[in-house]
Nucleic acid binder design. Structure first.
Lengths: 224, 224
DNA sequence: TCCGGGATTTAATGTTATATTAAGGTAAAG
DNA sequence: CTTTACCTTAATATAACATTAAATCCCGGA
């Protein structure tokens, strides 16, 4: 577990880092708000601990900037001022928890654990082959950095092919699985969608192709 | 974290226990109200999940008996009946939360976490994404400094979307979760409320949008 | 009890992504 | 060389979605 800890008071920082390290966390320590922001954007941390009072940018500003950039890493705010105002503001800005100073190390550890636990539940369901991956929850097809949200039928066909790697599926197979057993659609429509998919894969620069075998069917093939 | 789970439908129980176990909870499963009560009195659980419809004693009776004995363990009620009556009764009897069946595992996990968190600290129960936060206790939606108290249906839809970040929910999903599986309302009403929510989010200057994908559903998306 | 106003639903109308159709091409098998 | 399975594109149709306004419900106060 990798944490970012932003705290300008050196002696406190040192002590906390020691203890966190002892508890098997990997910790990066920074000492002002600007560094905190830069580090947070770069490294992928499992959680971020932000002091509110810091030079250059305060913790709330850092938090706001992070959320504005869509970075959803859990954040625990620390502050010496136990005033309710900060607390409200922090939580409104998207902090996950809040701990007033001075705090006991046990309490800090408990909050970090709680925060990490809370986030663990997202497990995207990905189908991958070659350099492409298909998210079964978001319907997103990703190749390299680029993503596209697939229309339903394209998604269903691609999913079907990915679930049957190495197996040839006939147009009838695809028609039945995607359009349903009792459809009256023509096989031509399958060809149309395979064509769309091929164009899309090429456009994204995928190293995966839809390979056809006359009279047998289709399968995905990774390019060398 | 140790949970007690009372549910008479074996296949559901088994599945839920598996997932909870996977998420590091220790789970005791019982299959009727009497057992639920006996176990709850003995073991010290961090939370109890009670189905309402159960043999011997129903969930509401178990809850009432527990509170009568001064046992304050947090209780989450489950029920197939989407009727408001049960909800009121349950909350009056001292339930901490309520989840109508059928539910997504993500929702159940979120509610359990919320319940546990509520006990361990007085952190308000906030769902956040981008620059918005939704208070699950007060129904307040906050963006920047501004807050608005949401009408019930708008609140429920937004909560549902926030509990299912990254997942597309179809209009039918939303209809079933919010209006109940036995509603005779038309999907049009979902569109209307999504429209209201969009207008409200825009009015508050949220950087979160409700994104629609034809034939698939809706999800929240943070603007860059 | 009736009334007023917010909450919810219905209805009517507009918009557009995407599913389907149609038609004209290519190339593999025999 | 012919057949036919396969491929692609473009035009069209359709149902899903979006918005607004008007109608109805429902609840608390007078």
């Amino acid at each position: 577990m990798k944490l970012l800890y932003a705290e300008d008071e050196r002696s406190l920082s040192e002590a906390v880092v020691d203890i966190l390290t002892f508890h098997k966390y990997t910790v990066d320590a920074v000492f002002d708000g600007q560094d905190a922001l830069d580090y947070a954007e770069m490294g992928d941390y499992d959680a971020i601990i932000l002091d509110i009072m810091m030079p250059k940018k305060n913790g709330l500003e850092v938090l706001q900037a992070l959320r504005a950039k869509g970075i959803q890493t859990p954040v625990l705010l620390l502050t010496a001022k136990s005033e309710i105002e900060d607390r409200i503001t922090g939580l409104d800005l998207g902090a996950d928890d809040y701990l007033p100073k001075p705090f006991a190390m046990g309490e800090l550890l408990a909050r970090i654990r709680a925060m990490l636990r809370r986030r663990e539940s997202f497990t995207p369901n990905l189908l991958t082959l070659g350099n492409l991956s298909l998210n079964q929850q978001s319907y997103e097809l990703t190749v390299g950095g680029k993503s596209e949200l697939l229309p339903k039928l394209e998604y269903q066909i691609l999913e079907l092919l990915l679930l049957n790697k190495g197996i040839f599926l006939s147009t009838e197979d695809i028609l039945v699985k995607v359009w349903g057993y009792d459809t009256d659609a023509d096989v031509g429509v399958v060809w149309v969608y395979l064509s769309y998919l091929r164009k899309r894969l090429a456009g994204l620069g995928a190293d995966v192709q839809i390979k056809a075998k006359r009279g047998i069917g289709y399968t995905l093939e990774v390019q060398p």
